[in-house]
Design a protein around this nucleic acid. Structure first.
Lengths: 357, 357
DNA sequence: CTGAAAGCGCTAACAC
DNA sequence: GTGTTAGCGCTTTCAG
């Protein structure tokens, strides 16, 4: 039984064994409807007998299609992104696409390298987080006319489509809920805002809501820390050491908030009686902390699913119309309480404030 | 400027512009040391000028190397796996490899399909979780002599190498700690044990430790539930409804334990006074629950890093010797207390019991 | 060190 | 429907 030099059987081997032409064998595998049932059967049998597995590289080279898409996230080490990637991968799989993932760990310069490397390798489309990227990234992708979907944001990018929600509006809505509890002294904990429009918009959403209330978000009450539990602890430690303390600390992610919550406990500060804390994302554990964390629910899984759908639509040239903005939802839980000076009762009722963009 | 029919410049275009042969251009890019500095420079310039990006499919076809590896996990929706994947991806990246991920969501039959599809697409190596896989999976991989690394376990697989820790020993050690607190009535909550040697070994580690203490793990106190917070809640609800209740519930994952903890709180059961709960994995949040969760620390990130290293070693034919078993560590925290009948004081001291394989 | 040439395994026209 | 034939863009001998 003659085989190619690599040892693995090739389509040619299959064709020979099935006694059909190379072309028919190829058709039988990629579009069975194109061949006579009899031919199909013979090919299938030969495939089985040989243990033949198609060679993706050869297919890709000849057809210019890889049936895989790339996704570059800031980090996989974040439950919200992990959720989204999970949904993304599942949906892509359903469409017959594979997922190549990578992360740049918030190192701005690295994103281009990562994207470039993924593009070199060959993908039919690309998913990135946020609309703000190095010009080189956009140039590369646009130059190759590679379908591009940007998630987690809503602004118009220089190139590509967006599937996301309004970070500013979500922050605005959550902040209104905080203001409604009588808080006037509000601090914000966020990740680096440089090269990250999501962080900036969350902060400015809060600032706007405060401004609409006649308040100002103090610049020195905006604390930047790495987006981790540890970062949240550090930020809260920093805040607790301030001469004048805020009565509410709004964290840009739940992870940060969980760290902040923990730090308060360490210092004997009772949340929400002495200090209110809010998060952002509504990860699964947000409802399980003590006290449960007030936050904004972000459609993480939905973004994964919809960006997959949209990207495949772009790749396969199907029109899907514009994806509407996804909606967030303010989730009031007990970590948010009345501001100390205005407090009447110990516990605020557990209100669910539905918000749209 | 002549270009290939795809519109994108090819290596041939680069060679022409640089006025060198195709071969030299190729060498300049893949192994710069092979060409004269002058040649290199001309090629580099041409690349720059053309905005040339290599075609991975063509490279793969000609060289039989894809510089990517596949990883099939049970699910990405699990902090422990997410951690491991994160480390895996980072390390692979450092070696110049890309990661193609997929999950089978604990659907046994699906794993083969997923693996097959990844192999078709083309990867230089594969990472799977656990040593128990469908025979077809092993056959496929072995037949193609594809380097294979199995993680999260330690047993000898029919094919491939293992990078992991002993699930049984970890469970055994943790159970000893539970027994040391005077517990005799111990229940276990785990995921499906079918097709999952990890789950089985954790359970049997507990059973063994109990047996060594003259106790028996009751079959009807082994509760199988999906590995999620929700599963943990359901399991605990089930347990609390039992005529005779255990005094300690050992959950196979922290996620499960967090759900169980929460359910206890809902029912007004005080942990650990009335009920002790333990987890497994030591995810970041385990130390932040109330009360903090006793668990076993699993080297998730280390497994990612080491399996990447080992796999690349196999691919590039470098000998790395055998990877030693990774060690776990029993982490005693307050969710584990004295068994009610033997309790003397309210809080057990926060002991860190170092354990090895 | 460089150029020429032969594929890698497949898809996609194109005739039949 | 099916067979034939060009490539897809690159790496890798092999001479020189």
């Amino acid at each position: 039984m003659p085989q190619s030099p690599t040892g693995r059987p090739t389509l040619e081997d299959v064709a020979r064994l099935a006694d059909v032409s190379l072309g028919s064998a190829s058709r039988a595998l990629s579009d069975p409807g194109l061949v006579k049932p009899k031919t199909l059967k013979r090919v299938t049998q030969a495939v089985e007998q040989l243990g033949y597995v198609r060679n993706g590289a050869a297919r890709a080279l000849a057809s210019r299609r890889t049936f895989s898409v790339g996704a570059v996230y800031p980090t996989l080490h974040n439950p919200a992104f992990a959720d989204s990637i999970h949904a993304l991968q599942q949906t892509l799989w359903g469409f017959g696409y594979q997922l190549v993932v990578a992360s740049h760990e918030y190192v701005e310069e690295r994103e281009y390298e990562v994207v470039r490397s993924i593009v070199e390798r060959g993908v039919d489309g690309l998913i990135l987080v946020g609309v703000e990227h190095d010009q080189q990234v956009f140039d590369l992708v646009r130059h190759r006319k590679l379908p591009l979907v940007l998630t987690w944001s809503l602004e118009q990018p220089p190139y590509g489509h967006t599937v996301g929600f309004s970070n500013r509006q979500a922050a605005y809505d959550l902040t209104r809920a905080v203001l409604a509890k009588g808080h006037k002294d509000i601090a914000v904990v966020c990740g680096s805002r440089k090269h990250n429009e999501r962080a900036r918009q969350r902060v400015s959403g809060t600032a706007d809501a405060m401004a609409d209330h006649g308040l100002t978000l103090r610049e020195d009450w905006i604390v930047e820390q790495p987006l981790s539990v540890e970062g949240g602890k550090l930020a809260m430690r920093h805040i607790l050491a301030m001469a004048q303390r805020p009565t509410a600390v709004m964290c840009n992610t739940d992870t940060l908030a969980i760290g902040a919550l923990h730090e308060c406990r360490m210092h004997g500060i009772v949340v929400p009686d002495e200090m209110s804390i809010t998060g952002y994302d509504d990860i699964e554990l947000a409802s399980l902390t003590i006290p449960p964390l007030a936050t904004v629910h972000i459609p993480t899984a939905q973004m994964g699913t919809l960006s997959a759908r949209r990207l495949v639509g772009l790749i396969e040239d199907r029109d899907l119309g514009e994806t509407p903005a996804l909606s967030h939802e303010v989730i009031i839980r007990e970590s948010l309480g009345q501001a100390p000076s205005t407090r009447r009762r110990k516990k605020a009722p557990d209100v669910h404030d539905r918000g749209a963009r």
